[in-house]
Write a protein that binds this DNA or RNA. Structure first.
Lengths: 125, 125
DNA sequence: ACCGCGCCTCCCCATCAGGCTAGTTCCCGA
DNA sequence: TCGGGAACTAGCCTGATGGGGAGGCGCGGT
């Protein structure tokens, strides 16, 4: 992006455990002198898992079966209309499920929701 | 948001560069929720140098620098307005870049674009 | 000098997205 | 038997999204 005058260390979080990764991200987010690497960005150092995956089980966010259906279709880039058609439901219902998905995944939009879900291991891209 | 009894994450610093290691140690020392591992202690995660790890990016889809910037922001769920603001460009230009991104990534929408990019290793979530 | 391309700006416009309130069934557990 | 949650449907509405065209500026290669 730009030359860094201040010695800010860019840290990439590369941890398989979504919950732990999330926690570290929020923990490090507010530290001055450290910046979390944006996805795809080259980082100076990386945080990697050092222990067998024992810390926390990937806390499966409690999604209803229907929400999972909607989520995978969203990850395919399907619109609400497409979701409705492929699931045999109305667009309103599709939007309903998307809405609660955004809520549960703490996302601001469907793109954010898919990214969050992928990061936290709820789905695989 | 619920407050969980979050255990302190033990972080080991395994970086060959003494200056960088030192700097990270002091930066992380004051972060609540994180404790630096004493030498030999079992740590949940480790900070490692990223330069050693080769950047494996199989098929780099030819994206312009600006498109990469936009893509990264898109992956974080940013709207065109947010992209424009964070990149210091107009919403129109943001839409322009998003448009060519959709084109190059063969996506039907921004969610699809991010999913494609993640799948093809252009970015990692 | 010329062209192509990255990058930027602006316009219009149809559609989509997401938040809102408000219903309906069905089924399970207290 | 009476909730309550899941699943579904619906309307309304504002803002976001994405496709289209039409330019301008700077740079590097031919």
């Amino acid at each position: 992006m730009s030359e860094e005058v201040a010695p800010v260390v860019v840290v990439a979080i590369e941890i398989s455990d979504p919950a732990l990764a999330d926690r570290l991200a929020s923990l490090l987010g507010g530290v001055t002198g450290i910046r979390l690497a944006t996805p795809g960005e080259a980082a100076a150092v990386a945080l990697v898992s050092r222990e067998a995956q024992a810390v926390l089980q990937p806390d499966d966010i409690e999604l209803t079966p229907r929400e999972r259906d909607v989520l995978v279709l969203m990850a395919e880039g399907a619109s609400n209309k497409a979701i409705a058609r492929q699931l045999g439901i109305s667009v309103h219902t599709a939007k309903f499920h998307v809405g609660s998905l955004l809520d549960k995944l703490d996302a601001t939009g469907r793109t954010d929701a898919v990214a969050h879900a992928a990061r936290r291991g709820v789905i695989h891209l």
